[in-house]
Design a protein around this nucleic acid. Structure first.
Lengths: 156, 156
DNA sequence: GGACGTAACGTTATAATATAACATTTGGTG
DNA sequence: CACCAAATGTTATATTATAACGTTACGTCC
């Protein structure tokens, strides 16, 4: 819901994300296979978006592009990750299971992402769209800028 | 500011866009060269976003990718077009000269785009970001859905 | 437990989007 | 005209993503 502090306990952060993913998959009757689980884990390795080919490299040789794209498709379809359109990259979803419009703050300095579940903004856009007779199916909101840490510190 | 009607006078629509672009370039001391002008004109051929390689084809042989990408970079830099991130495509800017966050409604049926200059939404996002200490430099908002025409008509 | 059907994965090739690097031409200015 | 900078041409290549088809693994029904 906000930016992780630079020294947070990332290990438990990843663990809880994987736990939530497993729960969500059980709930949906979806199979979180080994490959899918590894890709999700790699994505959660940092709080910055990761590109498909960066994931591919980390999967090691033997993996080809379709392998990683299929895993990404699965994770996207089940709401376990989001795609950051302005970066052609992927990031873990902070609150899977609750349907929500992704709304992202992207730090141009350190790369960190914060995902907001912000109803007010979504509502503002929907109202404006409705006034024009436009029916929104899905919404992409990405803000580029500086996170609190990078604004304060010299050049973290 | 809204969706163009299906039968609007598109010729004058293009003409006024090109006129505004020329005025804006004069104002900024930028050169709207022949290539740049042709690319802008091709973009305005429709109200749907156009891909770089589609433009390239229409420029005819003799043109290579850098030609079109350089023109696009120029047009983007001077606020004469916008890039639609979710489509890797480009669309003419409806109100050049006035700095604004692009905010787009994209019809998944007919491809039409409406560009909003909507202060309320922008403000909502900025407030939420400011509350987290995030400083926004630029903002991308793209809504996918159905335009009024396509909601009404069977399948225009 | 074996047969079967489907979902997942492997593999190869290629499509679509974008940029690097360097040569050449053009346009404005002194 | 001579010069410089900006614009364009040209070739090659990087990056992101998907098509197509064969093989393997998994669950289920009998």
């Amino acid at each position: 819901m906000s930016f992780p502090s630079h020294d947070h306990d990332h290990r438990s952060c990843v663990a809880s994300a994987l736990g939530a993913a497993e729960a969500e998959c059980r709930r949906r009757g979806a199979r979180l296979t080994d490959i899918r689980r590894r890709v999700l884990e790699l994505i959660w390795t940092s709080h910055a978006p990761v590109g498909a080919y960066a994931l591919l490299e980390q999967l090691g040789r033997g993996a080809a592009p379709p392998t990683v794209y299929r895993a990404l498709d699965f994770l996207l379809a089940h709401g376990l990750i989001h795609r950051i359109e302005t970066q052609n990259a992927y990031v873990g979803c902070s609150h899977p299971g609750q349907p929500h419009a992704g709304l992202f703050l992207l730090c141009r300095q350190c790369g960190a992402v914060a995902e907001l579940a912000e109803a007010a903004t979504t509502r503002a856009i929907e109202q404006e769209a409705a006034a024009l007779g436009f029916q929104i199916d899905s919404l992409t909101v990405e803000a580029q800028g500086l996170c609190p840490g990078c604004r304060a510190g010299a050049s973290p």
